[in-house]
Design a protein around this nucleic acid. Structure first.
Length: 819
RNA sequence: GCCGAAGUGGCGGAACAGGCAGACGCGCACGACUCAAAAUCGUGUUCCGUGAGGAGUGUGGGUUCGAUUCCCACCUUCGGCACCA
């Protein structure tokens, strides 16, 4: 062996060879096995844009490594992969290149599947699911029916962005610029009302605020909690002078006596009846301007309040006061009731509005310690709580009872009650697009809205569509597709031509993975019972408020219908950060800072790319890509190659001390790496492996090669390396004569005795500053440590003859002498 | 404005019960090998100071024998929400 040169490390040859072998032997096929504990590791599925991005690798490689780690720890691990394959880019490609979205999508999937395979991940490809395949979206439609039949889906008018020139609806990403113009023709976009389908996510708002048993980052829970936006208060019913009910929501029922005017959203349905003839023109003009205004423009107005008096009045139910009703765009139709009682003395926005339009400001709350001042004297609203004043029979009520007393009074008068309001809105699922799952609804002249019966699903997308540059959905333009027969009366019916939001598809893909070919339901219950819930879910934080809320809603709704079980679909969540370009900007083709994983794999091999992605940044933080750093990781793996295959000098001549140090480092490293895998701290896994290698190099130079301790170290090293760099670990495992496969090996056991330190370096401090170090037995007594410290020349020098005031001993660490 | 995360060498980062700041790697410098270069190997590398030593984890305070770590105030960067009644 000494004379045979070490073969070169050639990842380009090794990696495809093992990938083929793994596939051939079904190494990563996960099947139900009641004898072993299961672990469902899920990573967010990619959109098939065409090329695998370095960001995909960054998200998936550590997820794969951890799934492999769990596998070696004895879990039966399911780690599937698929494609979120519906969506707008395919349609844009269709128009631009005259290629059918299906062709475009499936061609991209083929390429990305190849790229994913080059990662060497343990995906069980038998379980691949593609959301745009009819056998998938059949069940997406089936779920829609379930929601419809259980009162969770409903239709109502709702505004969409509309290009009056193209005569088409636009998705959010098709509206460009500050002036919000159409991406295609540049015409300013307007809002248009259409009948659209919604899911009742708000029914689950309260439950979604609970995170029972969830090991999710605090950050994500905070994002979701803020997004759901719970406010506690009361509904109060005012009346217009004509007797119409005018309901408001308020978080401050205790300020009700300070309501000196009301404000309605410009679109509020009562505006017309409230408006007096002399105000009609001004009101109409304001409404028109507001309807053209976009959210962006509303923000750009920089809080300068605008509004118009309707001429109408309402009656405050608690004091019978007649107060003017205004309209203003700072009141949103989409939140609360679209109307507010304005309490300028205690609300900043109402205060600004009152000052601008000369409306009355009446303080009704006196915070403790504040002097009582008149509304005219106020320079700003006082939002604090305190004693009620100027509030009729409730004047003098202390702040901590105010809320309760007002609610009681309102209930007695039948004028209101305690209420909770949420920022979360129902989920609008209608998309005026072709490339999505058709909403399985028929409109019959006799029977009205009729769902397509489950046995007629899927409602297939027609293949023979024309891609006209009108922007209108081809489903609307198709000559025959929309004509159907009513399943109830047999008469003619029209199909819904809208398709579903792709978030609908991705809300249940983790269930489809369980049995992607199952045709008796969305998933095989046997598989569900064994694998669900998802144990570990990894993906980007950007999905905190959309996908992750939708999928939780979906699970809970299905649970109540009886389709799923348990409170939550995904028990543990971990988010990776983002890889930026070398210029610290977001990677994009136009900036030219995109890092292509294919090129890196060609140059370095997948194992190096995997290891570098785990090493170069904290996984949850992300960082700008740094191309020069990868050489260090490549060097490390080449050294692993030689350290395993090359014979060391003077084999077997190592001292006992060398052996002990080697074994200690090995088992300490094993402990540390095990913990880091558990806690998703991937960068320190690699650095610990590098440190251990440095120690092994030293031990080899000192003659440890060929000893049992050396062989133990090499064996354990390859097993620890296997999740990170699966190909080289497999190759070296075979070359040292171990049986296939390293990936079926158990995770190494820690030898606590070997890891134990018998000698420690005691740090000696004087007044907190390090002055000396002392090697002492690990089990040294406190007194022994202290006297050893005081005997040190360096300590004596810094004591300068003074008597120590205090001597502190931290076991196993240091002695601090205080003078 | 509100909510959240983060600020450590030239760079990415480590320090996992409050106890050696800078592990590991990049880069750089010097050396070995080489006719030479690459690759590889070795040594060094927070700053100031020739040195003893001193300073040092965004800034300012505090608690403590001792603070990157805990508390208070502030600054900067990033992310989310944003007239939410």
């Amino acid at each position: 062996m000494a004379n045979t040169p070490t073969p070169a490390y050639t990842p380009a040859e090794i990696e495809p060879r093992w990938q083929a072998k793994w596939q051939e032997t079904g190494l990563y096929e996960s099947n139900i096995d009641p004898k072993r504990p299961k672990h469902y590791a899920l990573t967010m599925l990619p959109y098939p844009s065409g090329d695998l991005h370095i960001g995909h690798w960054y998200a998936m490689t550590p997820s794969d490594a951890r799934a492999r780690f769990m596998r070696m720890r004895g879990y039966n691990v399911l780690f599937p992969m698929g494609f979120d394959a519906f969506g707008l880019p395919a349609e844009n490609a269709a128009i631009k290149n005259n290629i059918h979205p299906m062709q475009w999508t499936f061609r991209n999937i083929d390429n990305m599947r190849r790229q994913l395979k080059s990662m060497g991940a343990m995906f069980d490809w038998r379980r691949e699911a593609v959301s745009a395949a009819p056998e998938y979206y059949r069940w997406t439609q089936w779920f829609f029916n379930q929601f419809y039949n259980n009162g969770l889906a409903y239709r109502k008018m709702s505004p969409v962005d509309w290009c009056p020139n193209c005569n088409t609806t636009l998705a959010r990403e098709q509206v460009w610029g500050e002036d919000r113009h159409c991406e295609r023709c540049g015409t300013p976009v307007i809002k248009k009302n259409l009948e659209q389908w919604f899911f009742r996510t708000t029914k689950y708002a309260e439950e979604l605020l609970q995170y029972p048993g969830l090991d999710w980052p605090e950050r994500v829970r905070t994002l979701q909690t803020n997004w759901i936006g719970k406010s506690v208060g009361a509904h109060v019913t005012f009346h217009t002078e004509h007797g119409a009910e005018l309901r408001v929501f308020t978080t401050r029922p205790d300020t009700l006596w300070g309501a000196t005017f009301m404000v309605l959203a410009p679109e509020h349905p009562l505006v017309d009846s409230l408006t007096t003839p002399d105000q009609a023109e001004a009101v109409r003009a304001y409404q028109q301007q507001a309807s053209r205004q976009t959210d962006v423009e509303r923000e750009a107005t920089n809080k300068e309040k605008t509004g118009v008096f309707t001429g109408g009045y309402a009656i405050n139910p608690v004091n019978e006061q007649r107060i003017p009703v205004w309209i203003a765009d700072y009141v949103l139709m989409t939140y609360g009731t679209g109307a507010i009682m304005a309490v300028p003395a205690h609300d900043e926005r109402d205060f600004d509005f009152a000052r601008k339009f000369g409306l009355e400001i009446r303080p009704v709350i006196l915070p403790e310690g504040d002097p009582e001042i008149s509304g005219a004297e106020m320079t700003a609203a006082v939002p604090a709580h305190g004693m009620m004043i100027n509030s009729g029979e409730l004047s003098g009520t202390p702040g901590d009872q105010a809320y309760e007393k007002v609610i009681t009074l309102l209930e007695k008068k039948g004028a209101g009650h305690a209420a909770v309001n949420y920022r979360l809105r129902d989920w609008l699922i209608s998309r005026q697009r072709y490339w999505g799952a058709p909403i399985p609804i028929l409109y019959c002249q006799n029977c009205g809205v009729v769902p397509v019966p489950d046995e007629q699903l899927p409602v297939l997308l027609p293949d023979d569509v024309e891609w006209l540059p009108t922007g209108e959905s081809p489903l609307k333009l198709h000559p025959t597709w929309r004509h159907a027969t009513c399943p109830q009366c047999g008469g003619p019916a029209e199909r819904e031509t809208d398709t579903m939001d792709t978030f609908m598809c991705s809300s249940w893909y983790h269930l489809r993975y369980l049995s992607p070919k199952y045709d008796q339901g969305p998933f095989d219950p046997k598989e569900y019972d064994y694998w669900m819930p998802v144990d570990t879910y990894t993906g980007g934080i950007e999905h905190a408020n959309m996908h992750l809320i939708y999928t939780r809603f979906f699970h809970k709704a299905c649970r109540d219908i009886g389709i799923t079980e348990g409170p939550e679909p995904m028990m543990q969540l971990r988010n990776q950060g983002m890889v930026l370009g070398e210029d610290s900007e977001k990677m994009s083709k136009s900036r030219g800072n995109v890092v292509a994983p294919d090129n890196l794999v060609r140059q370095y091999g997948a194992d190096t790319v995997r290891a570098y992605l785990m090493f170069f940044a904290r996984w949850d933080m992300g960082a700008p890509w740094n191309n020069s750093g990868i050489d260090g990781t490549a060097r490390w793996l080449r050294r692993v190659w030689t350290i395993v295959l090359e014979k060391g000098e003077r084999p077997g001549t190592a001292s006992e001390e060398t052996i002990r140090v080697l074994r200690r480092k090995l088992h300490q490293s094993l402990k540390s790496i095990t913990r880091d895998f558990e806690t998703f701290e991937f960068n320190t896994i690699i650095s610990t492996l590098m440190e251990l290698q440095n120690e092994m190099l030293k031990a080899r130079a000192a003659g440890a090669w060929g000893t049992p301790a050396w062989n133990e170290a090499v064996n354990a090293y390859l097993r620890m390396l296997a999740p990170v760099a699966p190909h080289i670990a497999e190759e070296l495992w075979a070359r040292i004569g171990q049986p296939y496969s390293v990936h079926n090996q158990p995770w190494p056991e820690v030898d606590e005795a070997a890891a134990k330190v018998d000698e420690i370096t005691l740090v000696l401090q004087v007044n907190g500053k390090v002055r000396d170090r002392l090697v002492v037995p690990a089990d040294i007594s406190a007194d022994g440590a202290k006297s050893a410290a005081l005997a040190s020349d360096a300590v004596q020098k810094f004591l300068e003859g003074k008597q120590p005031r205090q001597v502190i001993y931290v076991p196993g660490k240091l002695v601090n002498v205080v003078v």
